[in-house]
Simulated scan of single mutants.
Amino acid sequence: MHASNHPAPAKSKPFFALPVRVYYEDTDAAGVVYYANYLKFCERARTDWLRAVGFGQQRLAAEQDIVFVVRAVQADYLQAAVLDDQLEVITTLERLGRASLVFAQKILRDSQVIFEALITIACVSLGSRKATPIPPAVRAQFATLV
């Protein structure tokens, strides 16, 4: 997990922080971050979170025959980010289900929340493309982070 200058989320759960710089390619015609790119920033943070807890996505696919896919997103866009903003994506694991995870993610600029989302992730068998239980070793590691 990455140390941060920002306080941990309210429940003092373990969290992961990913710095993100806004580039020209992230903005729309109005010069603000295109709405879908906030979700891309969150995806990057979840991928790096997974790697930080010891489970790279390629390794999980190759060794466990699983992938994690987005099932649902609840997002609130609170303020616009613009070119050259330095953002930080804060990720916490809120809930661990049998075959799913729920992440709370916030994007901050200068310690102020500008975007927040609850993202439900399903564990899916790579071979069958159907929901499958999270493997015991992976689940045990995740359980320490809820």
Rank of each mutant, 00 (worst) to 15 (best):
H2L: 06
H2S: 02
A3W: 14
N5Y: 05
H6Y: 14
K11E: 15
K13Q: 08
K13P: 03
F15H: 06
A17T: 07
R21H: 11
G31E: 09
G31Y: 12
V32M: 09
V32N: 06
Y34F: 15
Y34Q: 04
A36E: 05
A36G: 10
N37K: 14
Y38I: 09
Y38R: 09
Y38V: 08
C42I: 10
R44C: 03
A45Y: 00
A45D: 07
D48Y: 02
A52Y: 07
F55W: 14
G56N: 09
Q57H: 12
Q58N: 08
A61E: 10
A62C: 12
Q64M: 13
D65I: 00
D65F: 03
A72V: 12
A72M: 10
V73L: 05
L78H: 08
A81T: 03
L83I: 10
L83H: 09
E88D: 11
E88T: 15
V89A: 05
L96H: 10
A99D: 08
S100T: 00
Q105E: 04
Q105V: 11
Q105L: 14
K106Y: 03
I107N: 03
L108E: 08
D110K: 04
S111D: 15
Q112C: 08
Q112I: 13
I119V: 14
I121H: 01
A122C: 12
A122G: 10
C123M: 08
C123E: 06
V124M: 14
R129T: 08
R129I: 12
A131T: 05
A131R: 04
I134F: 06
A140Y: 02
Q141H: 07
F142G: 07
V146W: 00
